[in-house]
Write a protein that binds this DNA or RNA. Structure first.
Lengths: 103, 103
DNA sequence: ATAACTATGTTTAGATA
DNA sequence: ATATCTAAACATAGTTA
């Protein structure tokens, strides 16, 4: 059972990572839908899946696109206020995994 | 304390909704970052906040935009596979709240 | 309102089938 | 791999300061 504190690092074991991905993706989308329902807030989640070629977009690509469009219409100053910084990710590793997995 | 099972409906009390929004937004972004870290997956979250004029985009608007661009390049068929259906939301209510809150 | 606390409900890692 | 199970970890509603 989940006896360890989660180590927040990349899961190298392929099968384990895939299982965790599936579980957590589900959890993430549930949380997003709850936030929407409870607060009347529109929210979108985009996941660039490791095993699929296309990203998964919730609740819909059109909705996400529209929200981004509105965002882009704002002055740069306002935009930066809404951002959170985070360094960009492991594209190389993802690509490698896609080849490796290709389930 | 959280003695009730969460009722998954719109929180009408303004202050309570705002408090929950803040807490859950934080939680949602944490989940998203964990998914990214554990699975090497790029993910974006866009929240059309109720009290702010601009949506909040994580980890960055550019990243989200790029992911959507890639998505749009795919054949329609593939796109629909990545979607999950959900009816679109409470824009009216959100707008009303923005006026009402305007904190 | 904002922050901290904490009891309880929810999520999930690892195990099992 | 896939599904279910369960205990530990985690998230959070309501409360208090």
């Amino acid at each position: 059972m989940t006896r360890k504190k989660v180590k927040l690092s990349y899961i190298t074991k392929n099968s384990a990572r895939k299982a965790t991905f599936k579980k957590r993706k589900k959890g993430l989308l549930k949380k997003a839908s709850e936030l929407s329902a409870l607060c009347g807030t529109e929210a979108s989640v985009i996941i660039y899946s490791l095993s699929n070629t296309q990203p998964e977009v919730w609740p819909s690509p059109a909705g996400a696109q529209q929200m981004l469009s509105e965002f882009k219409k704002m002055p740069k100053m306002d935009q930066s206020m809404g951002m959170m910084s985070q360094e960009s990710f492991l594209r190389e590793r993802i690509t490698k995994d896609n080849i490796q997995l290709k389930r």
